[in-house]
């Protein structure tokens, strides 16, 4: 008895530029795919930058809406991920500035290197510990290390997203990693 074996060839992944072109040509499925592709990454960047899930949710939505409205300004030779990460990062910065203005005072970055008690409670494994350690970093290091994680070590892309020189990015990543190591070492020593 013959057994039929179906081997499905893996569909080639449609490029972001192609999806943008499709959207601009009036096919909404292009943008739907882009949302599926970047929703989690953008939300991760927003959560880590803002440290507030509600605000992160709104910032992610705001980023997609802004991107959709200005999609015609996107240059085909640019990288879509860099473009949309940049929109999201600036939306987060605006929210941080607004919250500082309304609270009437600067929100200081945490001075203590160790995660807070709540973060400590959920940091019971490596991923949890690392997440808590990232959360304990100062704001500028949190964003840079998150993009380093999301964009796969592409320093120039990170520099474009944050709008800072490449040298500054390298320094920030170096210092962020140093602080992460210290926080992780401290949290591992504690019971």
């Amino acid at each position: 008895m013959a057994v039929e074996v179906h081997i499905e060839a893996e569909q080639p992944r449609t490029s972001d530029a192609e999806l943008v072109s499709r959207t601009l040509a009036g096919d909404p499925s292009g943008f739907t795919t882009l949302v599926e592709r970047y929703e989690r990454s953008l939300y991760t960047l927003a959560v880590r930058t803002l440290r507030d899930r509600e605000e992160a949710r709104d910032a992610t939505q705001e980023a997609f809406v802004k991107a959709y409205r200005s999609l015609h300004t996107f240059r085909p030779d640019a990288k879509f991920s860099t473009w949309i990460f940049s929109i999201c990062y600036h939306a987060c910065c605006d929210r941080l500035k607004r919250s500082r203005r309304y609270s009437g005072e600067e929100i200081p970055d945490r001075a203590d290197a160790a995660p807070g008690p709540e973060a400590q409670a959920i940091a019971n494994d490596d991923a949890g510990r690392l997440r808590a350690a990232i959360e304990a970093l100062p704001e500028k290091y949190r964003s840079v290390i998150t993009l380093y994680h999301l964009q796969g070590k592409q320093y120039d892309e990170i520099a474009s997203v944050l709008g800072v020189p490449l040298g500054t990015i390298k320094t920030h990543i170096f210092r962020a990693k140093e602080q992460l190591r210290q926080i992780l070492a401290t949290s591992e020593r504690e019971p």
């Binding site: 943008f31 929703e39 989690r40 990454s41 992610t60 939505q61 997609f64 991923a127």
Partner: peptide
Amino acid sequence: SLPLEEPPAELHASILAATV
């Protein structure tokens, strides 16, 4: 190896409702 954050369930639908 750090997993990405899981967005709220309704976020996807609300993004699409506000865009396409």
